[in-house]
Write a protein that binds this DNA or RNA. Sequence first.
RNA 1: GACCCGGUAGCUCAGCUGGCAGAGCAACGGACUUUUAAUCCGUAGGUCGUGGGUUCGAGACCCACCCGGGUCACCA
Length: 511
Amino acid sequence: MPPMEDLSQVLRIRREKLEALAERGIEPFAYNYDATHRTVAVAASFEAAESEGRLSEDGDGEAVWLGGRIVSWRGHGKSAFAHLEDGDGSIQIYFKKDVLGDESFADLDLIDLGDWIGVQGQPFRTRTGEITVRAESYTLLTKSLRPLPFGKVETDAETGERTVHSGFSDQETRYRQRYADLAVHPEVREVFRTRSRIVSALRSFFDSEGFLEVETPVLQPLYGGASAKPFVTTHHALDQTMYLRIADELYLKRLIVGGLDRVYEIAKDFRNEGLSRVHNPEFTMLEWYQAFADYRDQMDMVERMLLHVLDSVIGSRTVTYGEHEITFEPPFQRLSLMGGLSDALGIDVHEMGESELRAKAEELKVPDLDGAGRGKLIDKLFGELVEPDLIQPVFVIDHPKELSPLAKPHREDPRVTERFELYIASAELLNAFSELNDPIDQRQRFEAQAALLAAGDDEAQQVDEDYIRALEYGMPPTGGVGMGVDRLVMMLTNQTSIRDVILFPILRDEE
RNA sequence: GACCCGGUAGCUCAGCUGGCAGAGCAACGGACUUUUAAUCCGUAGGUCGUGGGUUCGAGACCCACCCGGGUCACCA
């Protein structure tokens, strides 16, 4: 701790209050507090008592014990109003000198915004009608030594709309000090509560469908299952290079080989790439694999899964996302990638050679075409011409083979694979295919990837001999899906930056 | 990684063409026993992101760097 004289004024004054508390024999950091109620429950039980005529002659409810953080304060000389906030909400507290006694009331001088206190008293309605606990006693639970950046909150009496004045808005500080962001922004806490409920709903869905939740390695001797650059590290005792997983796909399919025929994993994946509104290098992926299913079955599964989440967490099948109203009503539209692009170009893409595609892409000024092959050019053109219009949920299906080294060839058209991606609000939410289970074909696809890797494509995959060995034992027909959980949370909580749905998003080291 | 914008009191921000570092909120002292962005009077609070440079003089201008936000690109 820096010496007192080096602290800024606001920090120094709180330290001085700590000393004053010691002089008055008040413990600033308590061990526990036996609360009988949470804030929201106090209001609910008061209202119930009120409507059933169980209030006292003075209009008081039954005594309650509450713990929480002081988030606002309005002193009036011999009385004061404050709001006490807990995990559920907040309630107003009325401190009155002739109720508390001179000494206890005087000790309130040492209480600040941000302090945690326990309060005991009876609820009543103030003249303006707000349910308020009249403090008969209070206990300091934790002294706050650093002021939280509370804004002043104005609540419109008619609409209930909340306006925050002089709040805490510096994005950098909010991400770096998420604890402070959460402490002063109930709406941020609500986003993360919703995130938690979404993840629970996903688990309950797959559990009820007979899937087994499993855990596969984060540290892998080879990485694969996606096109991405990995994080590299070293295991010292084994003197071995390890990669943080970019996907759990290849491990989950090994489990299908082993007879665990319905598995899912909610996993942190790591990709050594740039940051953006929709990318954090560490992100949460849900993958599931189901034996005997193909990609058509999985489209049905995706629809049912999303409806389960919407119905149980959001309570509506329509959500607002930015400027759009997104409606999840199955069956979602299915759009063939090649067909959609052909329509946009007015030419059958299957008939176009690589040079023709490149010319078209250059004509449209699509950036970063260096080294792009036929598949990548198609992908780029699709991204440029079709993706921006994919607002409502759409399954984009049947991708070119070059782009899909782990997908089965399409049973009716060998030029494409049995694959789909679900697009919502122009963003890719999930990716799925009928899993390639022919080990000889898989080896050829890996070798093509390895050639790309050798040629300098640092996002291409390596040959995974162990995975091929597993396929040689025999993997039943399998449908698999990978979904970006963070992105789903974004869409369902109307957050336009992935950082706003990740508690501690990656940031450059401070100093 | 490229481009654009930003970093000034605990927080939110102003600071013009280079001329004494400002406001609101929070804090501190005082008044106020049903307020709710409480109100009123007063006080204190600064490494102007960092390091160089130009200048009689730099928060401002120039250079480099650090950090963030946004946009683009790769990926979910």
